[in-house]
């Protein structure tokens, strides 16, 4: 009896979950159908002048009338999108390397050394998370573009992204380093290892999972960032992928096919990475919040 009741209530739960899942997946399917439609319009199917319900249903069914790769091919060849992705790749790679380096060194020091100013520095990192983006955006624009002349350069974006990622990464790594027993390092000192060797050979390898999350976070910060790139990159050849995607459908431009194809190319790496590593990100985020 109870098994049958459970099955019945489960079917209700499945119905709710199915509706919710349809809601979450639909926009993704929509973008896929536009991308493979081979056209630039944002209608999945043409609606005739006097449409029946069936015609309208066809127009919302996320399945292209004709499957075609042409949007993918031409967005990468006719459009400068390949170049924009390349820009994003360079900036994201450099940001990741720089961000991980800065966060590892600082996180290690905050975890292992007691020095004057340590608490203040850690707190200041947390407070900086509350600065509204636009408050620092204007000065950053003036400093980087007007004073240093770094408008439309990789350096400007890499430096800014790496520092944006620092507070989260430092807190996260510090927390992880704290869990690594000090005895390991002490015995290494007994064996005559230098401080740099302890850091590079013992602590960092043990912290690989945390370093990986830090790297992922730095990468995603840079890969997904839109507004700073839109403000600092004026020249079309220096656009990053997000700015380029907006370029396709912003203002009076209506190249939805290019946008959809580009969006899929740009999303796949981050979506895959995110799904693999999301549980670390969640724990890191809430850990930081609890301490704040």
């Amino acid at each position: 009896m109870s098994a049958r009741r459970a099955a019945r209530s489960h079917s209700l739960l499945h119905a709710i979950l199915a509706i919710a899942t349809l809601g979450t997946v639909y926009p993704v399917l929509w973008v896929v159908s536009i991308a493979f439609s081979g056209k630039q319009t944002l209608a999945i199917a043409e609606v005739p002048p006097d449409p029946t319900v069936l015609d309208r249903l066809r127009a919302i069914l996320p399945w292209p009338e004709l499957w075609s790769f042409s949007n993918f091919v031409s967005v990468m060849t006719d459009q400068p999108f390949a170049r924009w992705i390349w820009n994003s790749v360079i900036v994201a790679a450099a940001t990741t390397v720089l961000g991980v380096f800065l966060a590892c060194t600082a996180g290690y020091a905050f975890s292992r050394f007691r020095f004057p100013g340590r608490r203040k520095a850690l707190m200041s990192f947390l407070v900086s998370q509350m600065f509204p983006g636009t408050l620092t955006l204007i000065p950053l624009y003036i400093i980087l573009v007007k004073w240093l002349g770094l408008g439309s350069t990789y350096q400007a974006l890499v430096l800014v992204y790496a520092t944006i990622a620092i507070p989260f990464c430092v807190w996260m790594l510090k927390g992880y380093f704290d869990t690594i027993p000090r005895e390991l390092e002490e015995s290494a000192i007994m064996d005559g290892a230098s401080p740099a060797m302890i850091f590079l050979r013992i602590v960092l390898p043990l912290a690989t999972p945390a370093v990986a999350v830090t790297a992922l976070f730095s990468f995603m910060t840079s890969w997904n960032e839109f507004i700073l790139a839109a403000t600092l990159m004026d020249k079309e050849v220096m656009y990053t992928a997000p700015v380029g995607l907006r370029f396709f459908v912003g203002g009076y431009s209506q190249q939805w096919g290019y946008f959809a194809a580009g969006a899929i190319i740009v999303s796949i790496p981050v979506v895959v990475l995110f799904l693999f590593l999301q549980k670390y990100v969640v724990s890191g985020l809430t850990a930081g919040a609890v301490k704040g």
Binding site: F131, I138, I166
Partner: peptide, 27 residues
């Protein structure tokens, strides 16, 4: 504490120049 500061300085410098200074300048 020179070792500790040597580890912290790169990150701190970045934060100073690109976060805290712009923040002060913005104000």
């Amino acid at each position: 504490h020179r070792q500790a500061y040597a580890y912290v300085v790169p990150a701190m410098l970045g934060m100073m120049v690109l976060v805290f200074y712009p923040f002060m300048y913005g104000i």
